[in-house]
Design a protein around this nucleic acid. Sequence first.
RNA 1: GGCGCCAUAGUGCAACGGUUAGCACGGCAGUCUUUCAAGCUGCAGAUCCGGGUUCGAUUCCCGGUGGCGCUACCA
Length: 487
Amino acid sequence: MTENKVRVRFAPSPTGFLHVGGARTALFNWLFARNQGGVFILRIEDTDADRSRPELVEAVLNGLRWLGLDWDEGPYFQSQRLESYHALAERLRAAGHAYPCFCTPEELKQRREQAQKAGRPPKYDGRCRRLATEEVAARLERGERHALRFVVPEEGRTAFDDLVAGRVEVAHEEIEDFVLLRSDGQPTYHLGVVADDLDMRITHVIRGADHLSNTPKQILIYQALDRPAPTFAHVPLILGADRTRLSKRHGATSVTAYAEEGFLPEAFRNFLALLGWSPGDDSQLLRTEELTRRFSLQQVSRSNAVFDRQKLEWFNAEYLRSEPLEKILPDIEKELRRAGLWRDGFAAEEREWFVAAVELLRPRVRLLRDFSTWARAFFADEFDYDPAAVKKFLKDDRLAGFLSEELQALEKVSDWSHDEIEKAVRGVAEKNGVKAGLLINATRVALTGQAVAPPLFNTMELLGRGRVLPRLARLIERFADLTAASR
RNA sequence: GGCGCCAUAGUGCAACGGUUAGCACGGCAGUCUUUCAAGCUGCAGAUCCGGGUUCGAUUCCCGGUGGCGCUACCA
């Protein structure tokens, strides 16, 4: 039964990063393989030698690793499989399905432009296909530089049933005699994919819709070889907000950038899976287990999808506040380390405190990075006062005096608990005939530097008297300067 | 230009001949409240256009329009 085991592949070119479009394609392949109990293969399409370096490959692999898309075979490198391509090319040539072409790229370009101008289709005219056998032999003998072209049948059409797009048909007259082997001996994409997919016994080719129009060319090669073509599934493209193909103009396009910004892989995966695929009902939050269980190519949409950053952030926030703590703790640790805010005690004697802090913060955080920026004051004593917060909550000049009173009141609190702290702070407000909110908001700025933070009394209890009192004192001391600067 | 694919609210998806066209993100308003987030309640918002087929079309067919893709000795 292993003969019909599903085998799929993700075949990126080593561009130096994993593009979100590629990531989604990889994800669909991976989900399909896992769903079918199949094999997920990784292959690097690096036949364009000058664009391929080891570190570029590594970046792509890291993107996949971050996303948790583990591969069962590979990575294979096209650059190391040249013999296979040449063998296949030779077979095609020997069988009369391919012929040497002596036209230079410059000539071709020129002819193409001319044809365009004259309003004719810019298709290769097939002149080298009609060369006399003796002439070809002679020029080959002379060692003339040449490419190898595929013989596309003049008549008829090629059709295939795409699992996503449905039946697709293209007339042969629309397809030119495309190049299989470049004059430097490198295979082109068409020869490369077919050879690889054949050798690797790929059963399903799941790739971007940008390959749809070229698929008939590859099918023609399979037919020439008398080998069955794999099943194709072309998934729609991911577009930017302006509905053009996603590119740097649209902001981050590499998954690494999202990793660095503080997205959780699980959230990113969930979001990506729903771009062009639906479980068939209204479910949104789908963990990996559920994703693999429910994934099906039949449910892949045929229209392009716009990458919606806001929704991605919502997914992230959702995971941040609802995942089991143990699952996200390592990610938070990583972020704090990155920002130089991590203390080993957080995992040891301070662990209980650390967990309490995270629980207080995570319902209101969107990105992991928020832990080290917005929530900095929870993990470090040095932090800046957000000017907007100063402006908003330290407006009232009496606050300097009120906060001093509060400080004294807090010094007297014997049981440093939420309720006792609250009593003390409210007491000061009451005594002065002002709303408690005035003091509460100002205290929040004193303790966190922010206008927005978790509920104050919880925060105070958590920070502890040892940190609260000095921070209050520090703000009182700097009150005049700070408020002056914000006017 | 030619060829191919696509077309449901701003965005992502449901509805695969019969629903007041559903859900989520986002927006707006209210509620809670010590700021915020979350939660809860409510509001606005879509079947690209035109023809068919049918008792009945978001759904099937044709045409148009629009978007995207391909049209390389890139992948």
